[in-house]
Write a protein that binds this DNA or RNA. Sequence first.
DNA 1: GCCGCAATAATATCTATACAATAAAATATC
DNA 2: GATATTTTATTGTATAGATATTATTGCGGC
Lengths: 245, 245
Amino acid sequence: MHDHTPDTRPATLHARIRAEVEAHILSGDWKPGHRIPTETELMLRYGCSRMTVNKAMASLASAGLISRNRRAGTTVARPRLHSAVLNIPDVRAEIEARGETYGYRALLDEMRPPCCIHLGAEGHQMGRSRFIRSVHLADESPILVEDRHIFLDAVPAAADVDFGQEPPGPWLLGHVPWTEAEHRIAAIPADAMTARALSVPLGTACLLVERRTWRGAETLTIARQVFRGEAFDLTARFGPSPTGG
Amino acid sequence: MHDHTPDTRPATLHARIRAEVEAHILSGDWKPGHRIPTETELMLRYGCSRMTVNKAMASLASAGLISRNRRAGTTVARPRLHSAVLNIPDVRAEIEARGETYGYRALLDEMRPPCCIHLGAEGHQMGRSRFIRSVHLADESPILVEDRHIFLDAVPAAADVDFGQEPPGPWLLGHVPWTEAEHRIAAIPADAMTARALSVPLGTACLLVERRTWRGAETLTIARQVFRGEAFDLTARFGPSPTGG
DNA sequence: GCCGCAATAATATCTATACAATAAAATATC
DNA sequence: GATATTTTATTGTATAGATATTATTGCGGC
């Protein structure tokens, strides 16, 4: 009789070794600080070469599950820093996934001379920028108002794009390589402009996402997105090994 | 004459190969879809073995920067999914980092029979739990009110801990291994209980973080944290290769 | 006891090679 | 021309070594 149990075990040897060590750790069997068998021991146990064991362990180390030191050996890592992979999805995809029709409307689109941008409590001196204020709609009702600065010194191509039809976010993601970004997430009451743009009463709780993107030391763009509070939330789902090795 | 330029290049060969390919991608020199030299070509160019090149490329692939296919070769990956590593720091550390004194006060601590927990819009049938409502304070002023359920079937040790002094979050992180978690982040107006606990007017914009943690299929704990809107925000800072390979 | 030095145990990297898996391209067949 | 088959280019996995690096351990001398 055939064995129809779905074979969930990894197909390759190094993946299997990795999975088995990982299982010991996640089950609590091997607690933080626990000394893991040396590469030589595992090599003998699995009857494979040391390189294969090394590949498995290197992957666990890069996932932060174990900590490796020459001579001192390998131990289960101390509780890892509490971090999540936050998916900030394409607003359009998110809306369409809910079966609603996506809409986009640009409210303002202007060139701004070098000026001081306010971000949080601080002001920053920045170069010439294109400023676009837009609303994203789900079934004709506003979900999100976005203020975006694109710095033309860093992204000259953005000067010629028609952001009347296409939102700047996806265009930037698709055309401009970046090296670093920072998000700030907070809850704010709707101010007059926001309340009008989102058709909500003044003071309504809204979710603010401020995003700043760099290439090297150069700021590419700053986006300030205000979501209608009850209409949107961000979710982050994550396991102990974000990359999977 | 000695060369005192700080050698920032990676010390090992595979790290150097990785860094150089990565630089081509991040600089925009090699755009998405660009065909990257084959392992054999790189092996000749760097005068090393194919395994060394392979290690570099495998690391870039696992970071999502390139996409590899047998026979078809390696190409620069399409704009990666827009995800960030969100650090949801220790509330205590965060408060103390701002130079304020941290305080914790438990408001409620009771055993709950198996019941239906409401999370978002849905209800979930869950086992016996310990329920703790607490407030975290910065300089005596409330910052965060937390409702936490700990499911004793999954975490029996939690029955005997004194959560009157020690907040449940850090205890759980330090004692209970988990495999998966999910966050939901939203902005909500303060309801009556929250307004009282946080000493803010009814309807004040607050940041809600709902966190659910599993080990395997078993729910370990559910936390519902409401932050005083203007007092706290989450930040996420990230680059293109979260793990660094 | 304290310092320096050698021995040692562990990981880290690298090489050269072999074979497997896969998907594209080329070729043969109808 | 359409379909099946073979070839081939490319990555994926694994092996068995070699050498480098590094933190610990133990020892000798003072």
